[in-house]
Design a protein around this nucleic acid. Structure first.
Lengths: 234, 234
DNA sequence: AAATCTAAACATGTAATACATAAAAACATG
DNA sequence: CATGTTTTTATGTATTACATGTTTAGATTT
């Protein structure tokens, strides 16, 4: 048996803590018993007794589930299953300095991919009012000579509005989380080449495409608009 | 003052528990003090003393951070900051039955958006070997008359390979999480119309586009390939 | 009888203490 | 010097006690 085999066969030792296991058991229990949002969960003491562990352990496990929004607790009333807020949970671990470089780059790409791919949702759901609002936003489009902070804010407003048009709340929240990260990756020397100053399809061009074009045209326009970012990847 | 004003002005009452606040304080502390992955965190007792709370509370907060992968602890050694695994955390709250319908639909759309938007990554990074593997996969492409489970497995293999080609691990993991959900939404009556049986661009067609086409063509091909899904949305 | 106040019961929230366990460090032994 | 043993230390688990906020029910008032 060589070293690799040895390593894999010995890897099986369970290194998880009691809390880890209880947390898992609780979730399994909730799923198997078909719990829906709003259903109430047994009391801590009961859980402790039936699992044969101390209340401390149960509380730690519940505390974790509470953090990810899977359960909510009220005094006297006990705990109930809740709709977890996926993005709220993501937010907690999205700490730029704690993330490794690969993940940061992945997330940078993630945004680019989303903005191109969402063209169909935008074209299918955009309203006259949305277009008017977009026009208002791009009317004051700053040129590159202006204050950087102002440029960023403007970028955010425009692209944020695009996400809003998709009607996809989850994606919009995700974008909101990605923003500071995107900015962080930008500044860090993570992506080799500096961003070029070439002008591609402008925000105004995008709005025009949304108003008069097709989904396919919008995908191309977005791809072109993001060229400065893509250029840093490839 | 009308009801809405009243509601917003009264909303300010702090309903968070001590653990919630300590958890937040700890993360703030880590960020402000410029902690990087690998740096070790003060001992529980020290934290308890300096924050003026019991070790119980500190432990609950740390337990939460441990769950999302932000810290890792070893006996005797103490806790260290770690690279959080974003997708591992998401997985914990991705319980179909616990999610509300809006979120489920959002996630369904999310996948479609990703697969169209990632065309550029694929075209930029695909290798000769990748194309060979794709060809092997589609060589045994099952027709619609075959076993459903087999079809799903085949779908998974093909689309999973596409994500792999992007070289974006985060996106690949995300897709892996989305799979069971996608399937769940499919079956549930959540999306009105049933999926049509029309044949659009096939997997073979996609492979052909990847080998001989452009990013723009691949976006269009993917959009067309996913038409049966899009048709249920609009 | 309806409304309002009061007290008891109860489940979660926080604290304090004790001991178990694993890992590191120091020490001892051949 | 390599190996084995003890000590130390910080986390892991359990137990107990009490605080706090809600619910329930009972008492009081009108």
């Amino acid at each position: 048996m060589d070293l690799l085999d040895l390593k894999t066969s010995l890897k099986a030792i369970d290194n998880s803590s009691l809390v880890d296991r209880v947390e898992e058991k609780l979730v399994d229990y909730l799923i198997e018993n078909n719990f829906k949002a709003g259903d109430s969960i047994p009391k801590e003491i009961e859980l402790a007794n039936s699992l044969g562990v101390s209340r401390t352990v149960i509380r730690e496990a519940l505390s974790r589930l509470r953090m990810i929004g899977l359960v909510e607790t009220k005094k006297k009333k006990g705990a109930v299953l809740a709709n977890p807020d996926l993005m709220a949970v993501l937010e907690k671990s999205l700490i730029p300095k704690a993330l490794d470089e690969d993940t940061l780059r992945d997330l940078f790409e993630f945004r680019l991919v989303l903005e191109i791919g969402m063209a169909d949702l935008i074209m299918a759901r955009v309203t006259k009012e949305d277009i008017d609002e977009l026009k208002t936003i791009v009317a004051v489009e700053p040129d590159l000579s202006q204050d950087l902070a102002f440029n960023i804010e403007h970028e955010t407003r425009f692209h944020g509005k695009l996400y809003e048009i998709t009607g996809n709340e989850t994606m919009k929240k995700f974008q909101k989380l990605l923003l500071p990260l995107f900015d962080y990756v930008h500044r860090s020397g993570l992506l080799g080449k500096p961003v070029s100053k070439n002008k591609y399809v402008s925000h105004k061009g995008i709005v025009h495409t949304i108003e008069h074009g097709s989904a396919e045209m919008l995908r191309n326009a977005m791809r072109n608009h993001l060229e400065n970012h893509f250029a840093r990847l490839f």
